[in-house]
C-alpha cells in the first residue's frame, strides 16, 4: 500500500547471517513485546542489536537508508543508542556494547502507571530533521498501546539539544492540531514536551510510540472520518528509501 515490498524477517535469521541487511532498502522494527519486556521495554532486544548486529546495522544507518521503529521498535532503538544517536562512535567490542549507560533520553513507564490503549492525534514537527516526513500535510490519527511510552530526558539541556537540533519528529496534539501541553489523554503517557517520536541527526532513523500501521484504511477510523491515515508515514519513508 505504501509502495514497498515488505518481508518479515526473524532476528534469529539475521543473527545466523541467513538474511542480510544489505539486501534491503529500509528497515522497520515493529511493535510487540520483545523478550516480554521482562527487563524493561526493548532493553533485551537492544542488547541483541548491539551484540550481534552492530556492524551491519551501523553500515545500514550510515548509508542513509531509512530505519523506522514503532512502539517496541522505537524503545529498542532508543535503548540501543541508535536514537537520537548523537555521540555514537565507531567503536566495537565490549565497551561499545554497554555504552548505553550514558544515554540521556528514554522511554519509561506511563505517568498513569499502567498500559493504555487509545487513539491519539500526531503532528509532524515542521522543522524535523526527518525531512521525508514533510510531505505529510495533515495530522495523523492512530492508536497508542503501551505501558512504557513516556519519553523523558535526563535534564533540561538534553531537551534543549533535541529541540535545537530538530530531532523531534512527532508530537501529541489535539484534534485541531494544538499541542497537548501535557494534558491527558491528548498526551496519553506524560511524555516531556508532548514528544511522540524522534529522529537521528541524519534524519534517516525515526521512532515513534503510536501505531500508524493500525490506520491504513478509512474503515479503521473509530470516528468514521476519512484522511489522517497512518499510511502517510509509511508512504513518506518508503519514498525516501526509493529516492
Amino acid at each position: 500500500m505504501a509502495g514497498g515490498t515488505p518481508k518479515i524477517v526473524h532476528i534469529n535469521q539475521l543473527r545466523a547471517g541467513a538474511i542480510r541487511f544489505s539486501e534491503f532498502g529500509m528497515l522497520v522494527l515493529p511493535g510487540g513485546f520483545s523478550y516480554g519486556d521482562a527487563l524493561g521495554a526493548g532493553v533485551r532486544q537492544a542488547l541483541d542489536l548491539q551484540v550481534f548486529l552492530q556492524d551491519e546495522l551501523t553500515e545500514f544507518v550510515d548509508s542513509g537508508r531509512p530505519v523506522l521503529g514503532i512502539c517496541n521498535g522505537f524503545q529498542t532503538l532508543v535503548k540501543a543508542g541508535l536514537l537520537p544517536g548523537h555521540g555514537r562512535e565507531k567503536a566495537s567490542g565490549a565497551e561499545q556494547r554497554t555504552s548505553t549507560g550514558n544515554r540521556d533520553v528514554t522511554l519509561t513507564y506511563n505517568a498513569r502507571g499502567h498500559f493504555e490503549c487509545r487513539w491519539v492525534h500526531l503532528a509532524v514537527e515542521p522543522e524535523t530533521k526527518a525531512n521525508c516526513l514533510a510531505q505529510i500535510e495533515e495530522l495523523v490519527f492512530c492508536p497508542v498501546a503501551h505501558g512504557e511510552g513516556n519519553f523523558q530526558v535526563s535534564d533540561d539541556e538534553s531537551l534543549e539539544q533535541l529541540e535545537k537540533r530538530n530531532l523531534v519528529a512527532f508530537r501529541y496534539v489535539d484534534v485541531n492540531g494544538e499541542r497537548a501541553r501535557g494534558r491527558y489523554p491528548i498526551n496519553p503517557n506524560g511524555s516531556v514536551a508532548d514528544i511522540a517520536g524522534i529522529c537521528n541527526p541524519a534524519g534517516n532513523v525515526i521512532g515513534l510510540m503510536p501505531h500508524p500501521e493500525d490506520h491504513v484504511e478509512s474503515i479503521q477510523n473509530p470516528l468514521s472520518g476519512s484522511g489522517r491515515l497512518g499510511l502517510s508515514i509509511f508512504r513518506a519513508i518508503v519514498s525516501r528509501a526509493s529516492s
Binding site: L39, G40, V43, R44, L47, Q50, A94, R97, T98, S99, T100, G101, N102, R103, D104, V105, T106, T108, Q152, V153, S154
Partner: peptide
C-alpha cells in the same frame, strides 16, 4: 556492565 546494559535506565 550488566547494570548499564540490562538492569538500570540511566535517565530515570
Amino acid at each position: 556492565r550488566l547494570c548499564a546494559a540490562l538492569l538500570v535506565d540511566p535517565v530515570v
